[in-house]
Simulated assay, not measured.
Amino acid sequence: MAGDTSDTPLQAPPADLASLLGRVQQAGHRRESVSLGAILDSVGRRSFAPFLLIAGLVTLAPLVGDIPGVPTLMAMLVVLSCVQLLAGRDHIWLPAWLLERRVSREHFVKATRWMERPARWVDRLLKQRLVRLTRPPAHLPVALTCLLIALAMPPMEVVPFTANGAGLALTLFGLALLANDGLMALLGYALTGGTLALMILNLT
């Protein structure tokens, strides 16, 4: 576990996207840089949805997601999370070397504050619908799709816009599971297909 966390990793997941942003802004607040472990501890490790949201939002975030290597780091987070979810674990374990990866706190806070207004707008759109697409066992195809996205993310760093598409797809799946909103899951599946097709076209 990262050494700069003040929250327990067993706390309940956030209720919506605005709450998640509020929590992560406080992660590692006594340090000049914030670790991935502190960010994850701020939202809890009992739910798969916050992991997808963190990975997606960090990949999308200006000043953070554009840093070389960040999409690949987020891909590692998603791969490890998805594999453990598919294996039936109810608590996500991550290696210390991954949890200790850090980013400038100043850049991180600026990026999350930039997302606050869109987050409030997104939260108003979320509602429980098409819940068969998000409740077990439907979370398994979501995990498989997110695993596919994560495995494709490293080469996406050299194909313009595809990493952003992957980040948005992960965010949509995270929102779908967080709010039991099947429409977000459908949008995530559609965006995944489009993003992977764009990547393949650019690499061939």
Rank of each mutant, 00 (worst) to 15 (best):
Gln84Ser: 08
Ala96Asp: 15
Lys110Ala: 12
Val83Glu: 12
Leu80Arg: 04
Leu80Pro: 13
Arg102Phe: 12
Arg102Asp: 08
Glu116Thr: 04
Leu99Thr: 06
Leu73Tyr: 01
Cys82Glu: 04
Arg101Leu: 07
Pro68Ser: 15
Gly88Met: 02
Val103His: 12
Leu126Glu: 00
Thr112Ser: 11
Val122Asn: 05
Gly69Leu: 03
Asp90Gln: 15
Glu100His: 14
Gln128Met: 06
Val122Met: 08
Leu99Ser: 06
Arg124Ile: 00
Lys110Gln: 13
Leu85Phe: 10
Val103Ile: 14
Leu126Pro: 02
Ala96Trp: 04
Ala96Asn: 14
Ala119Gly: 07
His91Trp: 01
Ala75Val: 00
Met115Ile: 01
Pro118Ile: 00
Gly88Glu: 01
Val78Ile: 00
Ser81Tyr: 00
Leu99Trp: 05
Ala75Pro: 00
Asp123Gly: 12
Thr72Asn: 01
Thr112Pro: 03
Pro95Trp: 12
Met74Ala: 04
Arg113Cys: 06
Thr112Trp: 09
Ser81Asn: 07
Leu86Glu: 13
Ala75Met: 01
Leu73Phe: 04
Met76Asn: 07
Val78Asp: 07
Arg105Asn: 12
Trp114Asn: 15
Gly69Val: 10
Ala119Val: 15
His91Arg: 15
Ala87Gln: 07
Arg102Asn: 11
Val122Ala: 08
Asp90Ala: 11
Ile92Cys: 03
Val122Thr: 10
Val109Asp: 03
Pro95Thr: 14
Arg105Gln: 08
Ile92Glu: 06
Val79Trp: 07
Thr112Asn: 12
Arg89Leu: 13
Glu106Pro: 01
Ala96Lys: 14
Cys82Val: 11
Leu98Thr: 02
Arg113Pro: 06
Arg117Ile: 14
Leu126Cys: 08
Trp97Ala: 10
Ser104Gly: 12
Leu98Ala: 02
Gly69Gln: 07
Trp93Cys: 15
Met74Phe: 04
Met115Pro: 00
Ala96Met: 14
Glu116Trp: 02
Glu100Ile: 04
Glu106Tyr: 11
Trp97Gln: 15
Asp90His: 11
Ala111Asp: 11
Ala75Leu: 00
Arg101Trp: 11
Lys110Glu: 06
Arg101Val: 04
Pro68Met: 08
Leu126Val: 02
Ala87Asp: 09
Thr72Met: 05
Ala119Ser: 15
Arg105Ile: 13
Leu94Pro: 01
Pro95Lys: 14
Val70Ser: 07
Ala119Arg: 14
Ser81Val: 05
Glu116Ala: 10
Trp121Tyr: 03
Asp123Asn: 05
Thr72Glu: 02
Trp97Cys: 10
Val79Arg: 06
Asp123Ser: 07
Glu100Val: 06
Trp114Ser: 12
Leu94Trp: 04
Leu126Ala: 11
Leu80Asp: 05
Glu106Arg: 11
His91Asp: 10
Leu125Cys: 03
Leu99Asn: 02
